[in-house]
Design a protein around this nucleic acid. Structure first.
Lengths: 242, 242
DNA sequence: TTGACTTATATGTCTAGACATATCATCGTA
DNA sequence: TACGATGATATGTCTAGACATATAAGTCAA
């Protein structure tokens, strides 16, 4: 081992302890189930107080890399049964990150009393007003995605006066509604005639579908369906863990 | 406000402080940009030491709910530009979670010297041996997904003797390779004749594609492509945050 | 063999201090 | 006006203790 207690340290001590342990886990030197040295052992090894070691281990536990059990010790966790994490980026950010020009076009915007279908889609019972928006995002003037969105005006009244002909509703909401929870569903369909025309692809071509349903504190905000050309668009996720 | 300092406490103090603040942020009472009370103010309010308050705030910062700036204070963060986190579950776990019977069937298994295409797919330069596996997962005897996998034997030599006719390679790898990193790409295609037959769907039907590329400490382990019937399969993600 | 009780122990939380460090605000100077 | 030095301040890290609590493991009795 080389858990040296000194070293010319840029990072603080607890970070170094955390990094040391993390490295051993990630390289497989300490496999899942392996017992990590007790706090008092690490205290002796690094020559610091227990609180410092505890902070390092607590953060590793919070990151699900280790599991801490009273009286037993700390153990390397088995990879989270093969689940992974995928990051879905904002469309504008995604296009900009690709170094391509972002374009936005409002297709339609309707303010109406919520129909039964609208209420079902938003998961609300009470009738109220909604805004239905249809728009298109493009990259270098090539259709990138079409968006079909419903906003619950009783949750976001200020959306009634927002100008969605210039700003995409997703960006607007992001800046006007603070913290949210959301549920995403990803699926695939083949393009019908309307979709094919909007995305400038062939009828029957594959499309990636993202349905996002957003709320805040049990209050529905918006439901959106994004359609991407399936053969050209890709969602990429990199993750560390199990 | 009702930041009461006492109360019949099941949870510990720092957890209660953290929950109090989190609630205010999530409900929008403290919007993005809002300055959270200084540590010394919270110390006074809760009647505890600074370390206790610090622990609560540190965890909120780690969860990206707040941002801490020296000398300035702690602030509610603006939602992470509309990125989200999606959990992709293991196929067997996914099917079992749905309360359906999991079925597995090995279609082919070939051990061979890596071809140029294999090396490209695995992202390795050196020639070596690989295992190519094709298999199918089903739910209640209905095809659920087809899997096409490549395992780098120089990284996982023991895979050569594994019995993939009984155990899915994904599960086997999970139990024999500790911690990994991975990259996922999700896209959509339409079924060609071979895929259509394997999944028992029509040619031209939409399919969801997940390409997963897994490595450990810069060492390639496996590359896998999963094909799901796109109209029936869904990836669902729930998340909290921006 | 099984079940109930006891004990040792590692983690969980907390304190009342300490010094370090980044940075905002102010004041003085060129 | 612009720039540079200075001090105030909030967070960042750390200490050397403390008591609480869950639980593995051992002990003893039914």
């Amino acid at each position: 081992m080389s858990l040296t207690a000194d070293a010319s340290d840029k990072p603080t001590l607890y970070k170094r302890i955390r990094a040391d342990i993390e490295k051993r886990i990630l390289t497989g030197e300490w496999p899942p189930g392996h017992r990590i040295p007790f706090e008092h052992e690490l205290v002796a090894r690094y020559g610091c107080s227990r609180m410092t070691v505890n902070k390092a281990l607590s953060e590793l536990a919070q990151a699900d890399l280790i599991e801490r059990r009273r009286r037993a010790g700390s153990f390397v966790r088995r990879p989270q049964h093969q689940s992974a994490v995928l990051k879905i980026a904002d469309i504008r950010a995604e296009i900009t990150a690709l170094g391509r020009g972002y374009g936005y076009e409002l297709i339609s915007r309707k303010l109406r009393a919520a129909t039964a279908a609208d209420r079902e889609r938003l998961g609300v019972k009470k009738a109220g007003k909604v805004i239905a928006i249809s728009c298109r995002h493009s990259a270098d003037n090539v259709p990138f995605a079409v968006e079909d969105r419903l906003i619950d005006l009783s949750s976001v009244p200020s959306a009634a006066t927002a100008d969605f002909s210039r700003e995409p509703p997703g960006s607007w909401l992001l800046h006007h509604v603070p913290w949210t929870e959301a549920e995403h569903t990803i699926s695939a369909i083949v393009a019908d005639d309307r979709t094919a025309e909007a995305l400038d692809i062939a009828i029957g071509a594959p499309c990636l579908v993202i349905d996002r349903y957003t709320w805040r504190s049990a209050r529905t905000i918006t439901a959106v369906r994004l359609l991407y050309p399936g053969d050209s668009h890709r969602l990429v996720a990199r993750f560390k863990g199990g």
